[in-house]
Computed example of a mutant assay.
Amino acid sequence: MRMNEVHYDDSRPVDGYGPGFFRIGGAVVEGNVLLTPSGVTIWDGYGDVAGLVAAVAEVDVLLLGTGAEIAHPPAALRDAVEKAGAGLEVMASPAACRTYNVLLAEGRRVGAAMLAV
Rank of each mutant, 00 (worst) to 15 (best):
N4M: 13
V14Q: 09
V56I: 13
V61Y: 03
A86I: 07
P13G: 01
V49Y: 03
G18H: 02
V33I: 10
V40I: 13
G51A: 07
A112N: 04
V28D: 13
A113M: 00
A55F: 03
A105L: 07
N32C: 06
L52C: 03
A57V: 15
L103E: 09
L64E: 09
G45W: 05
A55V: 09
N32S: 06
G16P: 06
T36S: 11
G26T: 13
V81Y: 00
G45R: 00
V49D: 11
A84E: 06
G47R: 08
M91S: 08
D48N: 10
E5R: 14
L62C: 05
G26D: 11
N101I: 09
P73E: 01
Y46D: 13
V56T: 14
E58V: 08
V61N: 07
A75G: 14
V53C: 06
V6H: 12
P74R: 00
V59M: 05
A86E: 07
H72C: 11
V102E: 07
A92S: 09
G51K: 00
G16M: 03
H7S: 15
R12W: 01
Y17P: 05
N32G: 06
V33G: 07
L52V: 06
H72G: 12
G107N: 00
L115S: 04
V40W: 09
G45A: 02
